[in-house]
C-alpha cells in the first residue's frame, strides 16, 4: 500500500495506477540481425531487482497518462517520478539498498 505522485494529478493511491513493468527497454534496431538468444533476452529477460527499480506506470483511473518511477521494490518507497523521455535519477540516488530483508 503506497502513494504515487502522478506528474499531472499529484499524489494518489497506488490502486489508481497500473504498472507497465521495467522502463527503458529499447527495441533492437534491426531484429533480423539478432540471434535467438539476444531476441529472447529483449523479449523476456528482466532486471527484477531487489532494490530500486525503474518502471513504467499509467494513471489508469485518473488522467490515463504514462510516466516513469524509480521505486524501491522492498519498501515501496518512490525515489522519484519522471516523465517518459526524461533521464532516470542518477544511479547514486537509486542506491538505498533494501531496508528490510525478506
Amino acid at each position: 500500500m503506497f502513494l504515487i505522485e502522478c506528474p499531472w494529478c499529484g499524489r494518489r493511491d497506488q490502486g489508481e495506477f497500473s504498472c507497465g513493468g521495467e522502463a527503458h527497454i529499447v527495441r533492437p534496431a534491426s531484429p533480423d540481425d539478432l540471434d535467438d538468444e539476444s531476441w529472447a533476452d529483449y523479449l523476456f529477460n528482466r532486471k527484477n531487482p531487489k532494490g530500486v527499480h525503474l518502471e513504467q506506470w499509467v494513471h489508469i483511473q485518473g488522467c490515463g497518462r504514462w510516466f516513469n518511477a524509480a521505486r524501491n521494490t522492498v519498501s515501496n518507497k518512490i525515489v522519484s517520478v519522471y516523465k517518459v523521455g526524461e533521464e532516470p535519477p542518477h544511479p547514486e540516488k537509486r542506491k538505498p539498498v533494501p531496508e528490510s530483508g525478506q
Binding site: 490502486g15 504498472c19 531487489k50 527499480h53 521494490t73 522492498v74 515501496n76
Partner: peptide
C-alpha cells in the same frame, strides 16, 4: 499485485 515487489505484503485494493 501488479507490480514487482519483494515486500511480502501487497495492496489493500
Amino acid at each position: 499485485d501488479g507490480y514487482n515487489g519483494y515486500s511480502q505484503s501487497g495492496g489493500y485494493n
